[in-house]
Simulated assay, not measured.
Amino acid sequence: MWDPTTYLAFAGHRERPFHDLLARVGATDPRQVVDLGCGPGQLTPVLSHRWPAAKITALDSSAEMVEAARAAGIDAALTDVRDWQPDPDTDVVVCNAVLQWVTGHLDLLPAWLDRLPTGAWFAFQVPGNFAEHSHTIPRGIAESPAWRDTLGGTFRPVDAVPRPEVYAGVLAEAGFAADVWETTYLHELRGADPVLNWISGTALRPVRAALDETRWQEFTAELAPRLRAAYPAHGEDVTWFPMRRIFAVGHKK
Rank of each mutant, 00 (worst) to 15 (best):
M1W: 03
W2M: 14
T6K: 14
L8Q: 14
F10I: 01
F10M: 06
A11P: 04
G12P: 13
H13C: 09
E15P: 06
E15Q: 11
D20I: 00
L21K: 06
L21W: 03
R24N: 13
G26Y: 04
T28A: 14
R31V: 12
C38N: 08
G39I: 00
G39S: 05
G39E: 01
G41S: 07
T44P: 06
P45V: 06
P45A: 08
V46D: 14
V46W: 05
L47T: 06
S48L: 09
H49Q: 15
R50G: 03
K55M: 11
K55E: 15
I56G: 00
T57I: 12
T57N: 03
E64R: 04
V66C: 04
A68M: 05
A68E: 04
D75H: 07
D75V: 07
A76D: 05
A77C: 11
L78T: 06
L78V: 07
D80V: 00
V81D: 08
V81S: 07
R82Q: 05
R82E: 04
R82L: 00
D83W: 07
W84E: 03
Q85W: 01
D87Q: 07
D87H: 01
P88D: 02
P88I: 01
T90R: 03
V93A: 06
V94G: 06
N96S: 14
N96M: 01
A97N: 01
W101V: 04
T103N: 11
G104H: 00
H105Y: 05
L109Y: 00
A111C: 00
W112G: 02
L113R: 02
A120P: 13
F124Y: 05
G128R: 03
G128S: 12
G128V: 02
A131D: 15
E132I: 09
E132A: 15
E132F: 11
H133I: 10
H135Q: 14
I137H: 08
R139Y: 11
G140W: 04
I141Q: 08
I141D: 08
A142S: 11
A142M: 09
E143P: 11
E143A: 15
S144Q: 13
P145K: 09
W147Q: 06
R148T: 10
T150D: 13
G152W: 07
R156W: 10
P157I: 07
V158I: 15
D159R: 09
D159A: 12
A160T: 10
V161D: 02
P162A: 07
R163H: 13
P164S: 14
P164Q: 13
V166N: 05
G169K: 11
G169A: 12
V170A: 10
L171D: 02
A172G: 04
F176A: 01
D179F: 01
T184A: 12
L189V: 12
L189I: 12
R190T: 15
G191K: 08
V195H: 09
N197C: 11
W198E: 01
I199Q: 05
I199V: 14
S200E: 13
G201K: 05
G201C: 03
T202M: 10
R208L: 10
R208S: 11
A210F: 00
A210K: 11
L211M: 11
D212V: 05
E213T: 15
T214S: 15
W216R: 12
F219W: 06
F219R: 06
L223Y: 04
A224D: 12
R226E: 12
A230L: 13
A230E: 10
A230H: 10
Y231E: 09
Y231A: 10
H234L: 15
E236M: 06
T239D: 06
W240F: 15
R245W: 03
I246A: 13
F247K: 07
K253L: 12
